[in-house]
Simulated scan of single mutants.
Amino acid sequence: MKKLLLGVCLMLASFVLNAASITIGNPSVTTSGFFSPTVTQAYQSSTLRIDDVRSGYLLGGPISVAWELEATQDTRFSLGVFGSGTYGMNGSLLLGPWTVSILNGQGEVLTTGVLGSVFDDLVLQAGDTITAVVAGSIRLIGSRSFTTTLFLSNLESVELPLPAAIWLFGSVLLGGWAVRRRSQKRVRLICTA
């Protein structure tokens, strides 16, 4: 009985101590034309990731960068996606509107926005993935680098109700304990008589 109680206490403690966490995977870059980028991770912490996409081309064009996010437990969070780029002294690398799409594990679009958006109240279930995709175009001549920043905020565990199986298992344990105790009382009464 003591072992069972210890196991239950340890299980409850693990639920309490398990904090919400999300990992951001390495980016994948898709391009067209003569663009052959290299991606280097500039910085990563538990809630922030910054990547540099360096160009190896003379001609610009469309580009998309995608990151997969995974959670160890069901988590509600906010995701901010920012980007900037420069080429020499001539101004911005980014051309036209850049979009950000958040996709679920099946590739369906959950929400969209523009570069610089913060997406609130996203929910990521344990074992599932969400993909953040930044897409746009880069100027044609003299490009040097493009920096993207993803940050997570407002991380919180999504509380799930206990399944019925746990409640049934608990009632079976309590019933077994009651029957055992009752039989021990009978044995004591017989022995004392």
Rank of each mutant, 00 (worst) to 15 (best):
G25A: 09
G25M: 04
S28E: 03
V29D: 00
T31V: 02
S32I: 00
F34W: 03
P37Q: 09
T38V: 12
T38M: 02
T40M: 15
Q41E: 09
A42P: 00
Y43K: 05
Y43H: 12
Q44W: 09
Q44V: 13
S46R: 11
T47V: 13
L48G: 09
R49H: 06
I50P: 11
D51C: 03
D51F: 03
V53W: 03
R54K: 15
S55H: 04
G56N: 10
Y57I: 06
Y57G: 10
L58Q: 02
L59R: 13
L59F: 08
G60P: 00
P62T: 01
S64A: 07
S64K: 01
V65H: 02
W67V: 09
W67H: 02
W67F: 02
W67S: 01
E68L: 14
E68G: 04
L69D: 08
L69H: 01
L69S: 01
T72V: 08
Q73L: 11
T75G: 08
S78I: 07
G80D: 14
V81K: 07
V81I: 11
F82A: 07
G83L: 02
Y87M: 04
G88C: 12
M89Q: 11
N90V: 15
G91R: 13
L93A: 07
L95N: 10
G96H: 01
T99F: 12
I102W: 09
L103K: 11
G105C: 10
G107H: 12
T111C: 02
G113Y: 03
L115D: 08
V118C: 10
D120G: 02
D121V: 04
L122M: 13
L122T: 11
V123T: 14
L124G: 13
Q125I: 06
A126D: 04
G127T: 15
D128I: 10
